[in-house]
Design a protein around this nucleic acid. Structure first.
Lengths: 142, 142
DNA sequence: TACAATTTAATTGAACTCAATCATATTGAG
DNA sequence: CTCAATATGATTGAGTTCAATTAAATTGTA
């Protein structure tokens, strides 16, 4: 008779479909990002820099929810590809400023189509997408 | 006047808060999983095995949305900790069967509290959580 | 001014993730 | 039956992720 709710079932974990979904969608980015020679992590760094032109590493860590152990090698790689430059702040030598280069800024033209392509892969009603954003940012802000 | 919608803004990406949320929640698991000497990936393998007792690697890959390149070293590690055993199928030598050990099964008692603890960390209304599940599984099934 | 506390990145080590490739076993077509 | 196609895991290499620690610069306080 009793269909007891088992919290230890995979389907009853909040985190599992969240993480699996994120990875599945990141896979969908790959063919598009390959054309720009960017990884997903490099891409989200570029999203910030296309918007802001320059940003301190500590600010980038906060914006992307990543730590310096993750971003330091990513940013060095991007500098070697001449998408960015990294310079210490004059006012405070502890602070490392990341600036977009012309080459990095130019790459934006080739990226504008990507959100549309991904949106085409992930079929959600507009109100579902809106609700999803709302809940995810509610969790992130906790 | 015009506030044109910019699809290349970080806040307008679907994947970004999804992935960030997943990682933030996985971080919340850590103190609880440390007590069981499990990583998050090992934990979701155990979730399957507490339910099914045994499973083929290819089936585990499908269930967890992970590939053999990820799971092979994870399963070897779990075998070295005697939580599982790995044996080739008699009927088809290509198939590797993963079975839970008594030690692995016993660990379940220490894990039952974890979903409740995590639920306490992630504050969502029941209907929000239900909607979130629905949307995430809709995406995963695409 | 001194010097402890704090801030900021970098480094290190362990683990995860996936694409591409490989080796082995099984299946299927002729 | 034979051999090509397929299925299954394992391996490899590049990259991501984070905890813990370290090094350097700045700030605050006595």
């Amino acid at each position: 008779m009793s269909e007891a709710f088992d919290p230890l079932k995979l389907e009853n974990q909040l985190c599992f479909p969240l993480y699996a979904c994120a990875r599945e969608i990141i896979k969908k980015y790959r063919p598009f990002l390959d054309k720009l020679d960017l990884t997903y992590t490099q891409y989200i760094v570029m999203l910030v820099l296309w918007d802001k032109k320059e940003v301190a590493v500590r600010e980038l860590c906060k914006l992307l929810y990543l730590d310096s152990g993750t971003l330091t090698p990513v940013l060095k790689n991007m500098e070697s590809k001449e998408l960015i430059v990294r310079q210490r702040s004059q006012e405070d030598e502890r602070v490392l400023i990341v600036k977009i280069t012309q080459k990095g800024a130019d790459l934006r033209d080739q990226a504008v189509c990507i959100p549309g392509e991904i949106g085409g892969c992930v079929k959600l009603e507009p109100e579902e997408a809106a609700f999803l954003y709302k809940i995810l940012y509610k969790i992130l802000e906790q």
